[in-house]
Amino acid sequence: MTGQFNNPALHSYLLRLADTSLTMGQRLAEWCGHGPYLEEDVALTNVSLDLIGHANIFYQLAAELHEHPITADDLAFLRDAHEYRNPIITELPKGDFAYTTLKQYFIDVFNVHLYQALSTSSYEPLALAAKKALMEVKYHRKRSEAWVERLSLSTEEAKTRSQKALFDLWFYTPELFETDAAMDELFVQGVIADYTEIKTIWHQQVEAHLQHCQLTLPESGWVATGGLQGEHSEHLGYMLAEMQFLQRAYPGCEW
């Protein structure tokens, strides 16, 4: 598929991908220098670097579709919270290591299936980006899956923390699979993935692993929604205030 220049739906979908990766990477970067031990500090940072790298690529693709000349940095640093399109789960504070790990695991499994599907996108630049990202997120998943198990099947404290993280995070996950009319249209055009299919396989795999880890799903809670439409939690504003500070305080500068 060519001639996407005037495709606001695709532009906006690419922003969803980019914003999701950037907010994940930004949160994970907060661990750098503060990890539970040195080896893990280095490993967490690698994942963060991968995610910010993915964001950079998706922003570039989005920028290419923009009607005015614009850069990846403009998109990352000069949009306000209501213009961000990530699901709320990725903007949540980093929490403890159990919380970070479980959140990462949810996103990693999602990313593996998402990029797998996107690697056959009819929009070639997206397919290429997805193929590259896929290699990395497969590794992320291997790591986080092992850690979820390691924490859940070890000490009482680690298990309690993991269980609490699951209670706190579970109802943020449905939002990962939300679509809107524009996305449904892109799906019909063969540009993006089938989110219903991803949802099914995600639930099969994640629930099986959680069961293996002897963790219990919560029965009810507030089901997060709104990120896709720019309706976010309170956390995103603080994250952007910090992240965008220099660009906002010194507009129009080179860095």
Binding site: L38, E39, E40, A43, N46, Y139, K142, R143, A146, R150
Partner: peptide, 14 residues
């Protein structure tokens, strides 16, 4: 340092 071989392998990569 790692607690088990799998972790050692993953961390060695990183």
């Amino acid at each position: 340092h790692a607690s088990d071989a799998q972790m050692a392998l993953l961390n060695a990569r990183d």
